[in-house]
Design a protein around this nucleic acid. Structure first.
Length: 857
DNA sequence: GCAAGGTC
């Protein structure tokens, strides 16, 4: 038997398809697909299936001095047991093996990991094939000309693994121990995350240190006939053209002069045409950046891209490549879109061009093609709204890369008014070119009429505008990813995760991200004692060392030994400063949790966490002072800049992904609950008959509202109510549950007004809601509907089914994962439009794969 | 439980 190993499942399937000419059959082994035909077997790994770590005797943070990690052994162990077992099993039967992992450094290492697992079992020949994209031609060619594994290149990757682990773990443990932050809230540092965090912290330092400067600008309107356009005053500042006037007196003087006249004479007219080239093909960074201008976070756009890739609608989303491979035939791909209701017209238009030559960027790599659509087109209803929007972006970007350049006509007019110069720059899109198919990049025009030199124009509405220089802007997520790419930090597959990690670790908050006090303290401590780990130099040096290993100029040992020595020197420095560093970190941690003064004792109120894991507000004076306030039960609290003046308390935001909301001042919320009386609306369905329990609308001190039994805590029957908006009990009743129907008014309002007042307003018919109230209806019916929706969501999450499809399935009674497992694919396909029996089978297969224990050998 | 890199 001949075994072929790829980096991922998807590649295994496609390679099997190509080499077997479609005859390969899939069979499952330990939940892993193995493709077979004749004597061949192909299996996919899942990236690294083994990982590096320290031996177990180093695992207790408290028992091991962090400095001991500096020269600790690093060992490899399986991280994906079922895949490793399958590989071992197949290796024992193989007479020959071929490694077909990705054609890059990490791919070579993943290949070597597979090689070592095979060597544990057998000494059959192991070959290596390399191809830059999975196309018939390339794959056949590669398999016809096999090579050997490049052990030097793999060793370069191993050096990275060791250095990252040793530096990261040793310093992370040191900081965590010094600040007594063990468990979930440890303080982490690493070669990629820390320099990235420093970028954010440095920018924040610039913003804080920024000293705004006053300047003035002068604008006026020029008019020719009926056409007006805006012009701006400028002057010659040592040979360069300047618009900003830095002292008030000169600004006033220029303004007075210009405003005193009502005419200006055109002294120069310059016309130019500018070619506006279409954008380059998408690599990961450019894609994230474009998606971010549509409002998607880096994490979200990548997750959608992965779904679209898995569904077969677009190519692999993790790529550095900006040059389409030779075998991509743009006209054939465009052909696929002809006739489509959304894209058809544009595809036809592009096909009519004389020549179709795609743009190319500077980065040509060999692992994957630039992101582009596959030609497989989903119906808009098969995708959720967000998925569709991202899919459309990818399609249109591909269209743009094969479209004509746009042409702009620029018109620059200079006019003199009372010896002062005014200028206007007009631009008009003469040939829309790629803008016609790619509406995301700006094509806004600025109108300036055709004027002649010497012509006199009317001047009016002269204005002197006082302005201030602005501090630099915080990096947005996509800008940060661009910056990381420029500095060589992380890879296309990890950059967005790194940013997510900074959020998770409590280092940054909000969007665009702002560093917490803790982050500033960590960066400062690192700058002082381990500058290397917060500098992009560490990555640069590592890259150089890795190249040396790959070229055979250095060995893995040379490089890792030297790196460990450097780290040892860092620890010598650190030893004496442990206490000082720890205290500073602890202070900073507290600063991030501080809300305001305790009303009982004046000490600090802090956000704390109970032993059960729930958050609350407690006094720093505990145990002497026992003052507490509750916080909402959903999400993780974040202290934000806004404050409540009455209580001198910072507001609290609850981070819960898409359900994130601002809780506000915890004291105000608690007081509001104390002042609000329960409003009885009916009989408790649980205990009404037996104990006369009643249902009432309640407001809790944690800010949440619910319909609950008046006999609480003896009866804990409850139904949820929305957090925001005014709850209005209407006259209408639900017959089934004998409860009044409920409406929610003024949802957008921040709820600062008294609920009772608003209700009185509404009853007088003074309903000012823009979209009308939300008719929530009977609270029991509403809750049941909510639960049904929840099941649909679970279905989507667990099976990767698109939102619209999940809804359609729910319509025919398949509204949970278990339901889906038991259905007959053919029947579902017959009743649900747009779903095929094959699709259902695939979903069932994925569901089977989950949670399945690896089979014994 | 630490990193960063694959992949889902």
């Amino acid at each position: 038997m001949e075994l072929i190993i790829t980096e991922k499942e998807n590649a295994a399937r496609r390679i099997a398809e190509i080499l077997s000419e479609g005859s390969a059959q899939a069979e499952r082994k330990n939940g892993v697909n193995v493709y077979r035909w004749g004597s061949k077997r192909v299996m996919g790994l899942s990236g690294h299936v083994v990982g590096v770590d320290f031996p177990p005797e180093y695992s207790d943070w408290r028992d091991v001095e962090p400095a001991e990690l500096v020269d600790a052994d690093v060992v490899k162990s399986a991280t994906q047991e079922n895949i490793v077992e399958t590989l071992r099993f197949l290796a024992r039967k193989a007479e020959e093996a071929t490694i077909a992992t990705d054609y890059d450094r990490e791919g070579e290492l993943i290949g070597k990991e597979a090689y070592e697992l095979i060597r544990d079992e057998t000494d059959v020949p192991v070959k290596r094939v390399r191809f830059s994209s999975i196309t018939e031609r390339e794959v056949r060619n590669a398999f016809a000309n096999p090579d050997d594994l490049d052990f030097d290149l793999a060793a370069a990757g191993e050096a990275r693994q060791i250095i990252d682990l040793v530096w990261g773990a040793a310093l992370t443990r040191f900081l965590s121990l010094s600040a007594r932050q063990l468990g979930n809230d440890f303080i982490s540092v690493g070669r990629v995350q820390s320099p990235t965090l420093k970028l954010i912290v440095d920018r924040e330092r610039e913003i804080e240190a920024f000293d705004p400067e006053d300047y003035w600008e002068i604008y006026g309107d020029l008019t020719k006939g009926a056409e007006s356009f805006e012009a701006q005053y400028f002057y010659d500042d040592d040979g360069t053209e300047a618009e900003r006037v830095w002292d008030e007196e000169s600004a006033e003087a220029a303004y007075e002069a210009i405003a005193s006249t009502d005419a200006a004479t055109v002294t120069s007219v310059r016309r130019r045409t500018r070619t506006d080239d279409p954008p380059e093909p998408f690599n990961t960074t450019a894609f994230i950046s474009a998606a971010s201008s549509l409002g998607y976070s880096a994490q979200r756009s990548m997750s959608i891209a992965e779904d679209l890739y898995t569904a077969g609608y677009m190519t692999y989303p993790r790529t550095d490549n900006t040059v389409y491979p030779d075998d991509l035939e743009p006209d054939e791909l465009l052909d696929e879109f002809v006739g489509d209701s959304t894209f058809g017209e544009h595809a036809e238009m592009l096909l009519e061009q004389e020549e179709i030559v795609p743009t190319e960027g500077d980065d040509e790599t060999t692992d994957h093609p630039p992101i582009h659509p596959t030609g497989e087109i989903p119906a808009p209803s098969e995708l959720g709204e967000d998925e569709w929007e991202v899919f459309e972006l990818v399609v249109r970007r591909f269209f743009a890369t094969v479209a004509e350049p746009a042409k702009w006509a620029h018109l620059r007019v200079v006019a003199e008014a009372a010896d002062h110069s005014l200028k206007a720059n007009g631009k008009r899109l003469v040939e829309p070119g790629y803008h016609e198919v790619y509406p995301y990049s700006s094509a806004s025009e600025n109108f300036v009429p055709a004027v002649e030199e010497g012509e006199e124009l009317a001047l009016s509405d002269v204005e002197l505008q006082a302005k201030q220089t602005q501090p630099p802007r915080r990096y947005g997520q996509s800008r940060l990813i661009q910056k990381m790419e420029e500095l060589g930090l992380g890879t296309k597959a990890t950059r967005h995760n790194t940013i997510e990690k900074l959020y998770d670790r409590g280092y940054i908050e909000n969007d665009p991200p702002r560093p917490t006090t803790l982050a500033t303290a960590v960066v400062k401590a690192a700058e002082e004692f381990a500058d290397h780990v917060v500098s992009d130099d560490m990555t640069a040096q590592l890259e150089a060392d890795m190249s040396a290993i790959a070229n055979g100029e250095a060995t893995l040992d040379d490089v890792t030994v030297e790196s460990r020595e450097m780290l040892e020197a860092v620890f010598e420095e650190l030893a004496s400063s442990r206490e000082e560093v720890g205290e500073h970190l602890q202070e900073s941690l507290k600063a991030d949790k501080r809300l305001g003064p305790c009303p009982d004792c004046g000490d600090d109120l802090l956000v704390r966490r109970s032993r059960q894991g729930s958050y609350f507000v407690g006094c720093d004076g505990f145990p002497e002072c026992e003052y507490t306030l509750p916080l909402p039960s959903t999400g993780d609290p974040l202290v934000i800049e806004e404050t409540c003046e009455e209580h001198e308390m910072n507001h609290v935001k609850m981070l819960a992904g898409r359900d994130t909301f601002v809780h506000g001042c915890p004291r105000c919320e608690a007081e509001k609950a104390d002042e609000t009386e329960d409003e009885v609306i009916g009989v408790c369905p649980e205990c009404g008959e037996e104990h006369d329990g009643e249902l009432a609308i309640k407001r809790l001190r944690s800010g949440s509202r619910l319909v609950g039994c008046t006999r609480y805590p003896d009866c804990d029957y409850s139904l949820p109510l929305p957090r925001n908006g005014d709850i209005v009990v209407t006259e209408a009743r639900c017959e089934e549950h004998d409860l009044p129907e409920i409406e929610i008014h003024d949802q957008a309002g921040d709820g600062a007004d008294d609920v009772a007042d608003d209700r009185a307003d509404d009853e007088e018919g003074d309903d000012a809601d823009d979209d009308g109230p939300w008719e929530l209806g009977c609270p029991i019916c509403n809750f049941e509907e909510y639960q049904a929706r929840q099941r649909v969501d679970d279905l989507e999450d667990l099976s990767g089914i698109g939102g619209a499809t999940a809804e359609k399935l729910a319509d025919v009674g398949v509204d949970s994962v278990d339901d889906l497992k038991d259905v007959e694919p053919g029947e579902v396909a017959a009743t649900v439009q747009g779903v095929t029996a094959k699709q259902v089978e695939e979903w069932q297969e994925t569901l089977d794969g989950e949670g399945e224990a690896p089979a014994a050998d």
